[in-house]
Write a protein that binds this DNA or RNA. Structure first.
Lengths: 192, 192
DNA sequence: GGTATTTCTTCACTTAAGTGAACGATTTAC
DNA sequence: GTAAATCGTTCACTTAAGTGAAGAAATACC
């Protein structure tokens, strides 16, 4: 598991053994059971997440209905808005599958970043990349129909469609579960 | 104009006079006329933008139609995906109004960041904030109807609706101009 | 292993967005 | 200053998403 992390980091910076040890000694590897709620709406928290294995999602409860807006899988990082803004959370975070996560606090971030400026640089680059990527995903969402969005997902993250319940996928695609069912039937129809 | 910039920066870090001078000497303040295309699809570029005054937008041309996906106004920063990834741009960037922009290259970023580590920190914090904020905007978009999205925009960026052509606003809201017209008429109807 | 719950699909109906066209109203260009 | 292009709205029609309900299938829970 540590290898997966250090392999990921090596894409951005090169770590000395001392630096690797500093990370390991933070003791932030966690096994989390499916269904575990990692953050609740209204709650304050300092925890950031990095998925080594498994899947977590963010969701809102609007008019009593769960609306899933994002899935984070292997090598995805999530620092909740409430951590950045030090405010109550707008959304829930829950574990979709049994997962292995890194769960770190902002304090750890501050400490590691000030001790090893390399980390500061990695975090900046990573954030910039994720921001530009997120904008691209948002653009694609805006410029396509629900059906196109589903087909795009089928191309880009085909495993997600298998791993995740349809009704969560539906709100992720910005539609109701019934519409997703219908849309899938429509696509099958077309193929034949 | 410089005051606006340094006032913005002061929210994140405190600059010495030397540092301020280093920025000014980069000579990156630009006046740009309405309609100017700052980046074209397929083009490579190293330019990042910061809006001091005015408005710029990103758009795609899909099936011969312009699809505007984002507007950047006063104090908004934009580093295009193509700059981050050093690849041809997926989208166009154009000036919506006569504007005053900071236009900087990645080389300048590297130089300033390595000379003044403070800047590295500011960029990291800023990117993290923008990423978390962007995700929130995306979530809101996914979980609301076109009509709700328009009403939200009316709340959050009322001036944008005045500043920007309706057909650009429509694709920004993920719909066709005709639908935006109809939706606005529907809202007026309800009020009376 | 069997019951309860959740999840997925289907159906009939409603509502709103997409489409293509038309027509002023603006804005732009020369 | 006038012609041309662009822009915003409206209309009639089509298509697809939202809604509420119901039943089948899968999953979770003792």
């Amino acid at each position: 598991m540590q290898d997966i992390l250090f392999n990921f980091i090596s894409k951005y910076i090169t770590l000395t053994e001392e630096e690797q040890n500093a990370i390991v000694s933070l003791d932030i590897f966690r096994s989390v059971k499916k269904g575990t709620i990692l953050l609740k709406e209204g709650q304050k928290s300092n925890n950031s997440f990095f998925v080594l294995k498994g899947c977590i999602r963010t969701y809102y409860i609007i008019d009593g209905e769960e609306k899933t807006t994002a899935f984070y899988t292997e090598l995805d990082a999530l620092t909740p808005h409430c951590v950045i803004n030090n405010a109550p959370s707008e959304y829930y975070i829950a574990c979709v599958e049994d997962s292995i996560l890194l769960i770190s606090t902002s304090d750890m971030g501050v400490e590691i970043n000030s001790k090893f400026p390399k980390f500061e640089i990695m975090c900046r680059i990573l954030s910039e990349e994720l921001l530009a990527k997120k904008q691209l995903d948002f653009d694609e969402f805006k410029t396509s129909s629900p059906e196109q969005r589903y087909l795009n997902l089928l191309q880009k993250r085909p495993e997600l469609i298998q791993r995740v319940p349809q009704h969560q996928l539906a709100s992720y695609l910005g539609i109701k579960p019934q519409s997703l069912s219908r849309l899938r039937a429509r696509i099958l129809e077309k193929k034949s």
